[in-house]
Design a protein around this nucleic acid. Structure first.
Lengths: 186, 186
DNA sequence: TGTCTGATGTAGCGACCGCTACATTTGCTA
DNA sequence: TAGCAAATGTAGCGGTCGCTACATCAGACA
């Protein structure tokens, strides 16, 4: 028999793909279990309840996202804001990466109405990526780098929302305007 | 007996408050009907199915949001981008108005996974507000005004997402950075 | 080898879901 | 006033939900 904790980590990793593919509103204990190739009975046994399972899966998804970003971001610190925005925008043109952004928007939306378990998960993921960007972006002080990271984060998220509902011919000029605004300013 | 079409409009208007208060993931035919003070049987009778009902309610919510924005936006055209961003940011400090933004994020999130009925609704609402801002914002040409409106729209949405998951002491400096970026640039 | 604990399978509970069949009532019209 | 169609109430279908009770089984240890 497999160890419970090992199974838990393995199942969570497997379920990242399922959640990325199907989204948050379709996740049910039975569907998650089926996607992991186990019975719903065992999913609850491993994670105690659905919220725990989902929290672990979402954090595992954030870890995987981090790995993807680390791969596409240049390792140097002191990146100009425009460069950081450009790299991230480019990264999010990939369909697989878009799934992470879609999931992120879903998590935010859920957290607005169901603080448990989504609120803490959303906060953790946001700080996670904000820290990642704070380490790379330009800025004399930590505070300035934090502001710059926040600006880029907001720009990426805002464009993601608009791109979710408008066609490319509407969003393309907006993306340029956002890039220009990120590049200039304080 | 009440006329079916009249009832439909009246019920939709009533349900705007309910959807704003409870969010999209909790809407069920029975709950909507209870909130409107009718039986679930009648809700289906008025709207044919749940998706139709929800579409009408969401568009009614957008209309109400427009009225609120029209009330807080100065009627003049040619508003500087920073001014438009400032007015909208100020408007969204109101708790009631925040509910609209929360609902907007939920609609976008849903549209990513369930195109019907959320995709068309999201597109209509986005174009709706984009047009509203395009009419008010500064710019020599229609294209420039459209870009400026898009930039402000993205800035508002991006900040809304970040404010949904981070505390005020993190978001306040970011909001300033975003405001500065919106104010400058091309 | 017997026992005991943790891992697993089977079955199902009570609640809610969207929606419908069918009977009844209401109000207009002929 | 009779008839009829639209409006409404009652009941329930088949399905999914999160979760649990209970029995079984495998393996470590005495």
């Amino acid at each position: 028999m497999a160890d419970r904790n090992e199974q838990r980590a393995r199942v969570a990793e497997t379920l990242v793909d399922h959640v990325l593919a199907t989204g948050l509103s379709q996740v049910s204990v039975r569907q998650l279990a089926a996607a992991a190739g186990i019975s719903d009975r065992m999913l609850i046994y491993y994670f105690d309840n659905k919220n725990n399972a989902l929290s672990e899966v979402l954090m595992a998804a954030a870890m995987r996202m981090e790995a993807m970003l680390n791969a596409s971001l240049p390792p140097d610190a002191g990146l100009p804001r425009a460069a950081l925005f450009g790299v991230l925008t480019e990264a999010f043109r990939d369909e697989d990466t878009k799934l992470f952004m879609a999931l992120w928007i879903e998590i935010i939306a859920k957290s607005l109405r169901e603080p448990e378990p989504y609120g803490p998960v959303a906060t953790r993921i946001a700080l996670f990526f904000l820290d990642l960007m704070t380490d790379r972006v330009e800025g004399q002080t930590r505070e300035e780098r934090r502001r710059n990271a926040g600006l880029v984060f907001a720009a990426i998220d805002g464009m993601a929302m608009i791109e979710a509902c408008l066609p490319e011919d509407e969003t393309a000029p907006m993306r340029e305007a956002v890039a220009a605004a990120v590049a200039s300013g304080s």
